[in-house]
Amino acid sequence: MAALITGCSAVKSILVLNPAEPPVMMRTTVHVRAANFDLVQILQESRDLVAKVKNYVPGYDLVVEPHVAGSGQISATVKVLGSGYYLPEYSGNLDIINAAAVETATQHVHLSRLNREIITT
């Protein structure tokens, strides 16, 4: 599934739990190895995507921008600060799932209204 989503031939996900106090904010680091890449384009696309996600997850941030980390390897880190309504702010991993669900529902409603308008007119 992960290979299907990313288009990479091999994918590994690693889970790290840290019991530190004060709590560590939810973060994800992606390391990619590629034969060829355009770092300028990757930087631009990453910033655009982060700006887009920020619309529905305000605490979503690129804390380490895409950079070359070793030969043919690009790495970047995002941090997710939760909204802190029901869950603590550090649990951005849970918050982003809720935010994505709300955003999906909003778009779904928006599209079905659009469809109704198309059908009725």
Binding site: V16, A20, V64, T77
Partner: peptide, 11 residues
């Protein structure tokens, strides 16, 4: 209080 496996936080 980093734990083993948090190499990506060092940068």
């Amino acid at each position: 209080r980093l734990v083993a496996g948090q190499e990506s936080m060092i940068r």
